[in-house]
Amino acid sequence: MAEPVVEIRGLRKEYAGRKGHQVADLDLTVPEGEVHGFLGPNGSGKTTTIRMLLGLAAATRGSMSLFGVPVPSRLPEVVGRVGAVVESPKFSPSFTGRQNLLLLARSVGVPDARVDAAIETVGLRGREQGRYKTYSLGMKQRLAIAATLLKDPRLLILDEPTNGLDPAGIREVREVIRGLGEAGVTVLLSSHILAEVQQVCTTATIIGNGRTLATGSVASLIGASTSHRVVAPDLAAARTALAAAGLSATEDDADGLLVATEQPGEITRALGEAGVWLTELSPIGGDLESTFLSLTERDRMGGTER
C-alpha cells in the first residue's frame, strides 16, 4: 500500500495558561488520492491540528508526517507540494488580489504567469486588480485557493473553506474541491458540516474534543444507508442523468427522488456531469449523522478528562 500522504499519531496540544488539552491523542491518516473529510463540531480541534501540521503552531507531543517526511522538522522539503488555506484566508488588505499572489509566487520562485493562470482557474479574472479589502467573502476564499494553486500542490489542506459563504459560493468551492480530487490531488477537508463531507469526500475521520472517534470510508461510516433522497429543481433532467449513469431512481414524493446507491458520490458525479443542480442530497436510513452525533455526544458526556 502506498505511503499515506498525511500521517498523524498521538498528537497533543496544550495552550499555555489554559487548563487541559485542546487536542489529545489525535490520530489521522490521509491515503493518497482521497478527498478526506476531517469532521468535528466547532471547537473540537480541527484548526489547531491543521496549524500544527503546517508548522504554524508547535505540538506539545506526537508525531506527524507529510509524504512520509517528518514534520515540522523537515517541513521545508515538502511544503512546495502542499497548498493550504487555514481558517479564513488572510492577505494584505491594501494590496490587490494579484499583488498578494505575486508576492507569494516570487517567494517560492514560480513565474508570474502562474499567478494569472491561478486567477483564471478560480474565476477571478477581471477582479484581480481590485484591492483585497473590497473582495466579497467568496472572492477572498477563491483567492486563497488560487494561492494554493501557485505551487501545483499534490496535497490540499482546506480548513472549513465554505464557512460564511452564500449557497452559490459554497457550491462553487465544493465543485472546485471535487474537481481537484478527480484530477488526482489528495485533499484534507475540515468541516463541521456533515452533509459537506458526505457530498465531497471519499474517506473521513471524525473527531470530538480533540480525539479521533472514528475513521474510514464515507460509505462505511454511513453504514446502513443504501439509498439517498435527491431534490433538484429539474427532477426530470435529474432522473434522465441518473438513468444514463446506471442508477435507478424512483419518485419519493412530488419534489424528490429516491436513488438506490450507497455512494452519494455517484449521484453527485452523474448530476454534475449532466449539469443538473442539486438542492438536497440526504441518506435514507443512513446513520453518519447519528454516528456523528452519538460519537461526539458520548465523547462530550463521558470522555472528558478535564
Binding site: 503546517l54 504554524l56 511544503v79 493550504a84 492577505f91 488588505p93 498578494n100 507569494l104
Partner: peptide
C-alpha cells in the same frame, strides 16, 4: 505590524516555513 495585524504572516509561512 502590518503582517501581524492582517494575519498574512501565517500565509507567508505556508510558502516559506524556514
Amino acid at each position: 505590524g502590518h503582517d501581524w495585524n492582517t494575519g498574512s504572516m501565517a500565509n507567508q509561512l505556508l510558502f516559506e516555513p524556514r
